[in-house]
Computed example of a mutant assay.
Amino acid sequence: MLTTSTFTVTTFEPTSLAPPETATGTPVGVARMVKEFRGGLEGRAETLFTSAFDQERGIGTYVAMESFSGTLDGRSGTLNIAHTATTDGGPDRLEELVVIVPGSGTGELVGVRGGGSIRVDEDGTHRMELEYELG
Rank of each mutant, 00 (worst) to 15 (best):
A45I: 03
I59K: 10
M65V: 13
T10C: 07
P102W: 04
T86M: 10
V101Q: 11
G77Y: 04
P14K: 12
L48T: 10
E21I: 06
T26A: 13
A18P: 02
L72C: 14
E42P: 02
Y62N: 13
L48K: 11
D92I: 14
S16W: 11
F49N: 12
E122Y: 15
V30I: 05
M65F: 03
M65Q: 14
G58V: 10
T47Q: 14
D121V: 02
F12A: 09
T24R: 01
D121T: 09
T24I: 12
F68S: 01
T6S: 10
S16Q: 03
G114C: 03
L48F: 10
H83M: 05
D88K: 14
G111Q: 04
V99H: 06
G74P: 06
G124A: 12
R38I: 11
R44E: 08
L109K: 05
L41W: 00
G77N: 02
V9N: 15
G124C: 11
G74L: 04
G115A: 04
R57Y: 08
D123C: 03
P102T: 07
E42H: 02
Y132T: 03
T3Y: 02
I81P: 05
E42Q: 12
H126W: 14
P14V: 00
M128W: 01
S69H: 08
E36K: 15
F68H: 06
S67M: 09
G111R: 00
G107N: 04
D54N: 15
T8A: 07
V99R: 15
L79M: 13
T47W: 02
M33L: 14
T11F: 11
L2K: 15
E66K: 09
T22A: 04
M65G: 11
T6Y: 07
E42C: 12
T87Y: 04
G114D: 00
G124T: 08
V99W: 02
G114T: 03
Y132F: 09
G114H: 01
N80S: 13
G40Y: 00
S67T: 12
V9P: 06
A23E: 14
F49G: 11
G116L: 05
A85R: 02
F37A: 01
L97I: 13
M1L: 09
E56H: 13
A45N: 03
P20V: 04
P27A: 11
D121Q: 14
Q55Y: 11
I59S: 13
